[in-house]
C-alpha cells in the first residue's frame, strides 16, 4: 500500500476570502506578524500502487478544479 497526499490550493492570483478572514482573526489575536493566510485542502489517498499519471488524472477529473485551483502530489509512505 502507498499513502499519497494531494494538496489542493486556490491559485495564488485568486482572493481566498476564508483565508482573509483567518488572517484578520489572527491579527486581532495579536499575532500581528501574520500578513496572509490561505486555506487549502488535503486529500490523503491509500493506493494499491503508485502511478503518478493516474493520480494526476484523479486531480484533473475530480479532486481539483483547474479554473481556480493548483495541486501538488506528495508520497507519504
Amino acid at each position: 500500500m502507498v499513502t499519497v497526499r494531494v494538496n489542493v490550493n486556490l491559485k495564488p492570483s485568486l482572493l481566498d476570502s476564508a483565508g482573509r478572514t483567518v488572517t484578520k482573526s489572527l491579527v486581532d489575536l495579536n499575532f500581528s506578524e501574520v500578513s496572509d493566510a490561505r486555506i487549502g485542502k488535503t486529500i490523503t489517498l491509500q493506493l494499491e500502487k503508485y502511478d503518478e499519471a493516474r493520480i494526476k488524472a484523479m486531480c484533473d477529473k475530480l479532486l481539483a478544479n483547474p479554473v481556480i485551483e493548483d495541486y501538488s502530489i506528495e508520497v507519504i509512505s
Partner: peptide, 17 residues
C-alpha cells in the same frame, strides 16, 4: 454546469464570507 465544463468559469465563496 461550470463543474461539468458546459459553461466556463467557477464560483468561489462570496467575498464577504
Amino acid at each position: 454546469l461550470c463543474e461539468t465544463g458546459i459553461l466556463p468559469g467557477a464560483l468561489l465563496p462570496n467575498i464577504n464570507e
